[in-house]
Structures are given as C-alpha cells and as structure tokens.
Simulated assay, not measured.
Amino acid sequence: MTTTPVRPENLVAAVRAVLPSLTPSGRRIAELILHDPAMVAAHTITELSAVSGVSEATIVRTARSLGFAGYPPLRLALAAAAATTEDGDRLVPGDLGPDDPLSDVITKVTRAETEALADTGRQLTPEQLAPVVDAIARARRVDVYGVAASGLVAADMAQKLLRIGILSHAFSDAHLALTSSALLRTGDVAVGVSTSGETPDVLEPIRRAAAAGAYTVAITNNPRSTLAAAAALTLVSAGRETAFRPAALASRISQLLVVDCIFVGVAQRTFETSQPAIQDTRDAVNRFVAESRARRRR
C-alpha cells in the first residue's frame, strides 16, 4: 500500500495505477475520481457516499490506498488537481469511438500518449531510478522478461544495454526466461515488464531470479501488483486503457520512457566504456551497410 500521498498533478495517474487492485466498491470511487475529479472534490464524504452508493468506510479505505490519512486530504488534493487543469477534461482524455474521423484519432491518441508520458515522468523520481542505474552499471548480466507488448519493451531495453557493452538478453518465452533466471547470481539484474504486474510468465522468472540472489526490478502500471511485491524496486509507468487501446498497448510508450531513463542514466554512469561502445557499434553497422551497398553495385 502507498504510504506517501501523491502530488495533485500525479493523483489521477495514481488512481489508474491502483484501480486493478481495489475491491469492486473501492473501484467505484476510483472510477468516479477518474471520470470527474472536480465533482468528487465538491462533495463531502457523506454526499459522496450517497451519490456513489459506497459506504463512508470504503471511501476512507480508498483514500488510504492512495497514501492519504483519510478523505479530507484526498478531497483537497483532488480540488488542487482540478484547479491546476488548464482544460476541464484534461485529466480524462476523450475516448475513441468507432465513427471518429481520423483527425480526432490523431488528436486523441497524441493527447493520451502525451499525458501518459507526463504522468510517468512525474512519478519517476531520482530516488527510485538511482538504485536501478547503479545495479545495472555494475551488473555482470541483465535479463529482461516481458511478453506481448511488454515483450517489445523488454527487447528494446536489452538491445539498448547491449549497445553500451552491457551483456543483456530479453526473454518472452516462459521456459527460456526460467532457464535464464535459474543461472543468475548475486550481482546480476533481472527486470520484469508487465502492465498489470500479474503476468505469470514474468512473475515466475522474477521470483526465481530473486531467489538466486539477483537484484530484481519491476516496470509496471500497478504498484500494488504481485510483481511489484516480488521485486526489490518498482518503477511505475502510466497509461489509460480505451476501447481501441488495451492497457498493454496504452502503457507501451510510458514503459519505453522508463527504459530510456534507465539507459541514459547507465550510459552516464559508465561513460568511459559506454561512449567507446556506442562508437564501435555505430562503426560496425555503418561498415556493414557500406559494404552491402558496394556489393549491390557490382
């Protein structure tokens, strides 16, 4: 459970993050917050209980799940979030409909992804990032686990780290992931990427890696997930699910932001080796391309 209240500008993203782990009645309150934060802020706890059909005790528990002592401080944070919003519906980007023109598709997708990046950036702190950067910079090996859309993020992270000379592999097959995690040891790093934080193909390798002594990291939308509990450190991404963008797809761009921040931090920390590695790999690719073009001209 969150113990530190989130800042007003992060509040809606935090609600989305914990939504899957709430009870059905708690989820009703969370969905009201997502739908209209200003409306919730305008109600006392008694009024909100009447409007939502949820007990006051449940409202208090939902507020505490977000790190607040009770409903009054949550209400103040919601009011602050609504007051700093330039556009009344900015906190909840418009959903896409089957008949929306492509002009609306471009606008709404751009808006949703821009807000996912902003929400992720606001939640990602130097205090969270630094231990991950330090561990990877010192690691003998880094294994990254993810399936489907998160598997693409895992592959991106592995190839970025490989580019700066860090031995790294991405696994989307559960059997291979378990095989790799069984061979990890103290000083290695295992990263699990899962939007829900409940993907068995990611959970089991992370658990096995932790048991082997590896430093484990979770990249997930849900800080209260099983994956977050299993990992030594959790980095939270953000993304709003819509009819045409399931959670995994909506979160991909923000997961890539987390990966990029990790990569740049590691490249900075290992500058004396990372920069020559980048140059060497660039030269190798450029030489290959030039030779391939020359052969085609013959």
Rank of each mutant, 00 (worst) to 15 (best):
E9V: 11
E9P: 05
L11T: 11
L19K: 07
P20W: 05
P20K: 10
G26T: 15
R27F: 14
L32I: 10
L32A: 14
M39N: 13
I45L: 14
A50S: 11
G53W: 10
S55G: 05
E56N: 14
E56S: 09
T58S: 02
I59A: 08
R61T: 14
R61P: 08
A63W: 04
L66N: 11
A79H: 11
A82H: 09
E86F: 13
D87S: 12
G88H: 12
G94T: 07
V105C: 08
I106P: 06
T107K: 10
K108F: 13
V109L: 10
A112M: 10
A112K: 10
E113I: 07
G121Q: 10
G121E: 07
P131W: 01
P131D: 02
A135P: 02
Y145H: 02
A148R: 12
A158C: 03
Q159K: 09
L162F: 04
I166H: 01
H169N: 06
D173I: 00
A174W: 11
A177Q: 00
L178W: 05
T179E: 06
L184S: 08
G192V: 10
V193N: 00
S194M: 07
T199F: 02
D201I: 08
D201T: 01
V202R: 03
L203P: 02
I206Q: 00
A209M: 10
A211W: 04
T216D: 09
A228L: 00
A243H: 12
F244V: 09
F244K: 12
A248C: 11
V258K: 00
V259L: 09
R269A: 00
T270A: 13
T270L: 14
P276K: 12
P276F: 08
V289N: 14
S292G: 15
R293H: 15
R295Q: 13
R295P: 15
